[in-house]
Design a protein around this nucleic acid. Structure first.
Length: 316
DNA sequence: CTATGTTTAGACCCTC
DNA sequence: GAGGGTCTAAACATAG
């Protein structure tokens, strides 16, 4: 099975499924969510193969976004004008891939409850209240984001914030790349750790993931650029969410009402999965900036790393 | 009108 | 061979 990171695939079809390509794109964004057009752009930027037949693969890609539960649609808020929604990865899409193969998942990811609100048995009024709370959170974080020197927080920590946590998003660029850096003796070089520790990784990444971090790719928007100038506290980009100058992410609402969206959300709202709560921590990158100082105990970010927080199952 | 999102269907490939 | 994952194509609906 072809492995990533060995060549640039130039005009050849990259050995990644649309799912993994999409996941890469999403993961490359500090907010861990992207509008469709940005996903297109990401893929075309890095894989020349996809600069042709756009109609074909983009249709497939849209199909994948809709069809696969591992992608969740995040509506734009009213103050985020634009077309289409944002797309994010379900936090519990888990270890869908195995053996380093990005062509085929071992299991299809499927969620098992309709939505977080239903999962906690929220009545409509409670749901509204819940959403208001989330709104308030976001506004608070937005304020924080505008301040240049607020305490940094751990971002979409991928498990890094909690010592007990081992969850690392399988699609995280850091994670994917880390697989390429198995150090003799069984110790894997952890890009996540390096990023957390503030070590510049670009050099390593370039060699491991040439089409992503290639030397000549400086103009292709270094995917996990952690330039402090670009992001405020909580990792919310000061410039915009990839476009448009908005700083507030939308309230993430798993739109798909599959019977299971978030089965284990009984702990809500206090332990609302960070991802779903759209707590800025959960959506911001792990960065040198966003290292240790954050996270009060029990902060929403814990939820992302807690298996109990959001139970989805990989269904065969 | 175009981009986006959903759904259905068939073919191909892989794993069990 | 069955079942499942992926890819492709197409039709349709909706939003900007």
């Amino acid at each position: 099975m072809p492995r990533p990171g060995r060549n640039t695939y130039s005009d050849q079809k990259p050995p990644y499924s649309y799912i993994s390509l999409t996941a890469m794109a999403i993961q490359s964004c500090p907010e861990k969510m992207l509008p469709l057009s940005e996903i297109y752009k990401f893929i075309m930027d890095r894989f020349p193969y996809y600069r042709e037949n756009t109609q074909r693969w983009q249709n497939s890609l849209r199909h994948n976004l809709s069809f696969n539960d591992c992608f969740i649609k995040i509506p734009r808020r009213p103050d985020q004008p634009g077309k289409g929604s944002f797309w994010a990865l379900h936090p519990n899409c888990g270890d869908m891939f195995e053996n380093g193969s990005f062509l085929r998942r071992r299991k299809r990811f499927k969620v098992i409850t309709p939505d977080p609100l239903a999962a906690v048995g929220a009545k409509p009024s409670e749901a509204a209240h819940y959403l208001q709370q989330q709104h308030a959170k976001l506004r608070l974080s937005a304020l924080a984001a505008t301040g240049a020197h607020l305490p940094p927080v751990a971002g979409y920590n991928l498990g890094a914030a909690s010592p007990a946590s081992t969850f690392k998003h399988p699609f995280a660029i850091e994670n994917i790349i880390a697989r390429e850096y198995k150090v003799p003796g069984g110790l894997a070089f952890s890009a996540v750790q390096s990023v957390s520790a503030g070590y510049p990784l670009h050099g390593q990444l370039s060699s491991a993931w040439p089409h992503m971090y290639g030397a000549g790719a400086a103009d292709t928007a270094a995917p996990i650029s952690m330039a402090s100038a670009d992001y405020g506290a909580y990792g919310v980009p000061i410039k915009s969410l990839c476009h448009g100058g908005q700083t507030l992410p939308a309230i993430p609402v798993p739109i798909k009402a599959t019977p299971a969206s978030v089965a284990g959300l009984s702990a809500l709202p206090h332990h609302l999965p960070a991802f779903l709560s759209n707590s800025p921590q959960s959506l911001s990158p792990t960065s040198p900036h966003a290292a240790a100082s954050q996270s009060s105990p029990g902060a929403p970010s814990d939820a992302l790393t807690s298996p109990a927080a959001l139970q989805s199952v990989a269904v065969h």
